[in-house]
């Protein structure tokens, strides 16, 4: 019969102390909260109050393939709010505009990997448009000095470096101001142009598609200018904690989102038919422009 191996008393104490130290050490006593950040500039419904249910469902869906405990969801609709959450909460996943991704990439603070892109309302690429009333004389040529309004929060750097060509820059060739109510801006533009401060409106693809579907709006507008094809919103894994296995698993999970009942519900809330692989060609072009510009 084998004799029982007894750990000497001092060693017991060392183990207990080590365990105590481990448990009480900063950052170890409580698990760090893992989460994701959804960014949608200028969308008033992208607020924690209005999007609570959406975030809850998304947390459940995203948490399923990865072993990080329950995920927490944050949402932001202004660049400032997005920056604050990125700084304070260190989300491990980002679902947001390519401009934010390119900026984070440029800062090179954390490793990132683009997983998929998010088409909305059937649009797999982004294209900004400038619209004006059909009856107005406005064109790109005579836009100089005019006021253009867009959503209440936007990424000015991305617009300047990637969206608009160097020859047609906001702040230089025309004034670009935010508006808290784009629908109201359209009303003023169409119905009481004399009261409207803006001459044209800048719409992203989603907003443009939204107004295109309104027979009281779109027939009254004309597109003055439209941008090149640009990348859509991206889903990006952020941080060094990701393993390649996890990345692949999550990517597969995201691409299969439309076939999952919970995922389909989320997609409906996002007005999307399903997530698709990233168009790296468009992203590369946008990256090049973003980095090249001062």
């Amino acid at each position: 019969m084998r004799a029982k191996t007894r750990i000497p008393l001092p060693l017991n104490w060392v183990l207990v102390l080590a365990l105590g130290f481990y448990l009480t050490a900063p950052g170890l006593s409580a698990p760090v909260e893992s989460g994701f950040l959804v960014v949608k500039y200028g969308d008033e419904s992208a607020s924690p109050e209005l999007a609570a249910e959406f975030l809850e469902k998304l947390a459940t869906f995203l948490g399923a393939p990865i072993d990080r405990g329950p995920l927490k969801g944050w949402i932001a609709n202004t660049p400032a709010e997005a920056a604050r959450i990125l700084r304070d909460a260190h989300p491990i996943l980002l679902l947001g505009p390519p401009g934010l991704y390119l900026e984070l990439e440029l800062q090179q603070q954390l490793p990132m990997e683009v997983l998929v892109q998010v088409p909305r309302m059937g649009a797999t690429s982004e294209r900004y448009v400038l619209v004006a009333p059909k009856k107005s004389e406005l064109s790109v040529e005579n836009l100089r000095g005019e006021l253009v309004r867009t959503v209440f929060a936007f990424d000015r750097t991305y617009l300047e470096r990637v969206v608009f060509p160097a020859s047609f820059q906001p702040g230089v060739d025309f004034q670009l101001e935010p508006s808290t109510n784009m629908a109201d801006e359209i009303f003023l533009l169409l119905e009481v142009p004399e009261e409207s401060a803006a001459s044209a409106l800048l719409l992203d693809t989603e907003l443009a598609l939204f107004f295109q579907q309104d027979d009281m709006v779109w027939p009254e507008l004309k597109v003055v200018w439209q941008s090149e094809e640009l990348p859509r919103d991206l889903v990006v894994a952020v941080g060094s904690e990701w393993t390649s296995t996890e990345i692949q698993r999550l990517k597969r999970h995201l691409l299969g989102m439309k076939d999952d009942p919970g995922g389909a519900e989320i997609l409906e809330l996002m007005s999307s038919d399903g997530l698709v692989p990233c168009n790296f060609e468009l992203l590369e072009r946008a990256r090049a422009k973003y980095r090249r510009s001062p």
Binding site: N181, A183, I186, F187, F210, D214
Partner: peptide, 11 residues
């Protein structure tokens, strides 16, 4: 104007 905005909100 208010009705317009309300309609857009509903949309």
């Amino acid at each position: 104007r208010q009705v317009w905005n309300l309609r857009q909100r509903i949309r």
